[in-house]
Amino acid sequence: MASETHSATSAGSATESPFTPEPYVVERRVVETADTVTMVLKPAGGRGVPAFLPGQFNMVYRFGVGEVPISISGDPNRPDELVHTVRSAGKISDALTKTLPGETLGVRGPYGVGWPLQRAEHQDVVIVAGGLGLPPLRPLLYELLAHRDRYERVEIIYGARSPKDLVHYEDVQKWRTRGDLRLQVTVDAAGREWYGDVGLVTARIPDARFDPPRTVAFLCGPEIMMRLTAQALSTLGVPEASIWLSMERNMKCAVGLCGHCQWGPAFVCRDGPVFRYADVKRMFSVREL
């Protein structure tokens, strides 16, 4: 892919097997929603956690069940722990969400290219997350807020199916009370208990404050949501080269050998998961590519 990469971290040396998971102990388990948990992992045996870039992912393995790609959702400035937020969507991810503190999981990675946050310096930043698109963006937000003065206005739009499906709620509440960013939370449908916005994330864009030509946008969520959001931002004048999004595909190996994650010429595991909208816009509009 033409997309510039952000120092993709390769796992292991040439002589090692790229397929071998390392054991990590589940230290804490936070129930996010009915089907989603966040797990805080510590490496077994006193090893360190490999450095990662916001937007990268790991292959997370449950003994006897299998492994799946999961984005890293923790703070890149906390090198002592590894945080993953997992939704039960299949046999393997379901088993991962049921792993209890004290139990061991396998991890290999980190893989892929991360969000190019440095491109947002001295620019307005728009972050749009849909559903479980927030966890892959959370490390970016931690990093951004750790150096808040480097960026101009920060707008976050976070959408979920219902109030019950909102994840990282503690963080969301913290961000809501900060004076140096604006956060809009919207849900597709809600009952009377919900006082917030109802509707798609794209409907919140007109209320966001940013100067389109001087804005960098980071999107993560269902493909349809990213496509419509990218179109809306582009229509407002955000350069297509300044819109970044994170793709999801079936993956078995995460190192470009199994072929599953191909999207046009790209291996999502290696050339992504983060792509520049300008580079992938055409592929985005082709059905079943």
């Binding site: 090692e16 097997s17 397929f19 071998t20 998971p21 054991p23 102990v25 077994a44 003994f63 004290g102 139990e103 061991t104 396998g106």
Partner: peptide
């Protein structure tokens, strides 16, 4: 991979 207590060891 072989289970070892609560953990496991992997042999490539």
């Amino acid at each position: 991979a072989t289970r070892t207590g609560t953990s496991f060891t992997v042999t490539p």
